[in-house]
Amino acid sequence: MSGPVQDSIHDALVAALAPTVLEVINESGNHNVPPGSETHFKVIVVSPAFEGKTLVARHRAVNSALAEQLAGPVHALSIQAFTAPQWAERGGVVPDSPPCLGGSKR
């Protein structure tokens, strides 16, 4: 089941980047936050908008689409941004996010 923050991340990325593949994963359960939290997310975005862009530029595009969420409830965001050919080459596999170490208890 997805929560309101997760839905808003999904909708903002659809609007900004017209992704062909989009996965918004709530990883808050792996962290030092109460059950049901929406604080730690991973997004997998495959979009033609990333064509010819550096990794930093791609991440900036995602961060900027999610400025509102990052300024608010979202504490951590892992971004995997690919073009369609890169995504096909990878076979749709992304690395695991690192484990929580306690963090800043925000």
Binding site: L55, V56, H59, N63, L77
Partner: peptide, 21 residues
Amino acid sequence: SEWPTIPQLYVDGEFVGGCDI
């Protein structure tokens, strides 16, 4: 850096990226 998350790595005065990059 106009970058909303930490960590941030800089090499030779240039911003390289965060953990994912």
